[in-house]
Simulated scan of single mutants.
Amino acid sequence: MLKNISNMIFFSTLIMGTIISISSNSWLGAWMGLEINLLSFIPLLINLKNSLSTESALKYFLTQALASSILLFSIMLLSLENIYFDNSLLNWVLNSALMLKMGAAPFHFWFPEMMEGLTWFMSFILMTWQKIAPMVLISYCLIFNYSLIISILSIIIGSIGGINQTSLRKMMAYSSINHLGWLLSGLAISIYYWMIYFIMYTVILLSMVLLFNKYNLFFTKQLYSLSNYNPVLKMIIFSNMLSLGGLPPFTGFMPKWLIIQSLSNSNLFLISIMVIFTLITLFYYIRMIYSALMINYTQLKWIYFNELNMNWVLILNFFSLMGLPVISLLYMIF
């Protein structure tokens, strides 16, 4: 009971820190919001049943403390009117500190290793909510060319890094880095595109994380044996992976489609790089799906959805699998 109350307090403080950060009128207030968010997230990471969670919490603290110190240093220098520092250079440093906070490449070194020691729910918070404040702050001081360079590097490293992974948490971490590149490119166009992409990515990721958490799935070899007790579940998870990779006609393709349309007239080279390396992500998803579907099983019964017993999870899955046709139909009607 006491643990649940303390977790609720930490979660409310976590949300409050993000709100303070994105609604602050000064950079110092934004930094304070980030620190409140950090100090409330670290106790949530520690799980006494998992020895790796303490190591992950320490890695997160050290990385975020380094990024916060660089951020505060650049804020202090920007507030001083002197001739010793160029403001454009300080903007680059400030952007880099915020990139380090959310784990964008090439500042991603801590992110996959830390994810390995977390629960699925904490991993979901780290991949979604913890990226809101840094990305909103980046939109205030966005350097267009720098953000495009970081987005290309994130897409490349996120795609190549997940090829030979057997851990689902590390695979989701590299997938998050890949999507971070798309989010940064969407942010460079408009905050509207960023919001659409982030909301759809969050919904698709939530539907996957809930199923992973319910069935204690942590490694790819566990996915191969899902047909032993629920073949429908395996099809749902694999379809969500394809949606997360951005394969049409799944919902995950729609925000990518919007960004491709917006950048196709101005930066065709960037779009080509983004699409090519996103296809690599789809390649190792499809390779894993093909291997799992080709395995023969002794059980021949078809077990329906009664094992899931989670109606709201099925609603989320319906949105992530059928969102693009439904949205296209509504667009044609209205």
Rank of each mutant, 00 (worst) to 15 (best):
W312Q: 11
F269K: 14
S272E: 14
N216E: 13
S51H: 07
L148M: 15
M32C: 14
L324F: 10
I163Q: 05
W257D: 00
I204Y: 07
M288V: 11
Y201L: 07
F269D: 12
K221G: 07
I273N: 01
Q222K: 01
I46H: 08
M322I: 12
L226Q: 01
K59W: 05
I138G: 05
I236G: 08
T166V: 13
I132T: 07
L329W: 15
K170E: 02
W257E: 12
G161S: 08
F219D: 14
L39K: 04
K170L: 06
S227H: 14
L62Q: 01
F73I: 08
T18I: 13
L223S: 01
Y215G: 08
R287Q: 11
F73V: 04
L58Y: 11
L282E: 03
F109Q: 12
F238L: 10
Q130D: 01
I196P: 02
L45W: 08
V136H: 09
R169A: 08
S175T: 08
I19D: 09
S56D: 03
N82T: 14
N7T: 12
N82L: 06
N164E: 09
L14T: 04
Y84S: 09
P134E: 01
L38H: 02
L80Q: 13
N47V: 12
F198T: 05
L48S: 15
Y140F: 12
N82A: 10
R287I: 05
M16C: 15
L45C: 13
L293S: 09
T54A: 12
M114G: 04
Y331I: 11
L330H: 03
L210Q: 06
G103V: 04
N178C: 09
A57Q: 02
F277R: 01
F219T: 14
R169E: 09
I286H: 04
I327L: 14
V275G: 08
L268Y: 12
W194F: 14
M102P: 04
I149S: 12
K214E: 07
Y201H: 06
S88N: 15
L184W: 03
N306C: 10
T63L: 10
L72K: 00
G33Y: 04
M171T: 07
F238R: 10
A30K: 00
F144G: 07
S21Q: 03
W27H: 00
C141M: 14
L118F: 09
L2N: 15
F61N: 03
L247C: 01
I259R: 03
S243N: 02
S154R: 02
A188Q: 02
I236K: 11
Y193I: 12
M8Q: 14
I15N: 04
M1A: 15
N87H: 12
F283Y: 12
V136C: 07
S23K: 11
Q64I: 01
I70Y: 06
A67P: 00
N4Y: 13
N4M: 13
I150F: 04
Y229L: 10
L48E: 15
D86P: 10
T281H: 11
L321K: 07
S139A: 04
S24G: 03
L217I: 10
I83F: 15
I303P: 05
F334H: 11
W129L: 10
F219R: 13
M171A: 07
I9T: 14
T166L: 13
N311A: 15
